[in-house]
């Protein structure tokens, strides 16, 4: 891994900067603690083939194994659904962030505000502002960047890395999700 500084140089992170996700166990621990996780995917999830494949696979695994609701922004809803992902809603990026900063919002399913938010697939400059808005206005929410570019405004973020290294990280995460899911199912059968 390399680069724990803002990908676009001008997007400074302030005094409190995101911790780097060095191993997938960190994400698993965050998920374990979370009561209401959510995934938000932006339009760049459908961009170049490699990035799209990695992100779709990861999001799909999160949905299958952890049943995390997925919201999408912009016009990619149909294309995401074609790839087998079930969406809990479609809202503009500004609308989603506006709702996440409102403690009285009951979420897409009416069951309450989210406490852990995964974000992926936004252009860096826009994504940076979304993270910044949540950092300033929803300090109780943990926000994770899943893209391979370091986002200082997130709570946790991957460092700047090449696509190959990022793919390896995501593969490790998916393996972990699988093994934990299998373990959980075994326990359920045993009980």
């Amino acid at each position: 891994m390399s680069g724990q500084d803002s990908w676009i140089r001008a997007e400074m992170g302030g005094t409190k900067q995101a911790s780097v996700i060095t191993k997938p166990e960190i994400l698993m621990a965050l998920l374990k603690k979370a009561k209401r996780p959510l995934i938000i995917i932006g339009h760049e999830i459908i961009s170049d083939r490699v990035r799209t494949d990695i992100l779709i696979r990861m999001v799909s695994e999160f949905q299958k194994t952890k049943r995390i609701p997925i919201l999408t922004t912009s016009h990619i809803a149909g294309q995401v659904m074609e790839r087998g992902i079930r969406l809990s809603g479609v809202l503009g990026s500004m609308e989603i962030i506006d709702r996440l900063r409102d403690p009285t919002w009951n979420g897409c399913d009416g069951n309450g505000q989210y406490d852990l938010v995964f974000i992926a697939g936004f252009s860096y400059a826009l994504g940076s502002l979304l993270f910044s808005a949540l950092k300033q206005n929803a300090p109780q929410t943990k926000v994770i960047s899943l893209d391979p570019k370091y986002h200082p405004h997130a709570t946790w973020s991957y460092a700047n890395m090449k696509t190959d290294s990022w793919k390896a990280e995501i593969d490790r995460l998916i393996d972990l999700l699988h093994s934990e899911n299998t373990h959980q199912k075994m326990e359920e059968i045993h009980v």
Binding site: G42, H43, T73, S74, H75, G92, S93, M94, F122, S123, L126
Partner: peptide, 16 residues
């Protein structure tokens, strides 16, 4: 619905 809003893509802008 909104008076000032950012759209992520031209497709989103057109629908808005």
């Amino acid at each position: 619905e909104h008076l000032f809003v950012t759209a992520e893509t031209k497709e989103e802008a057109m629908v808005l």
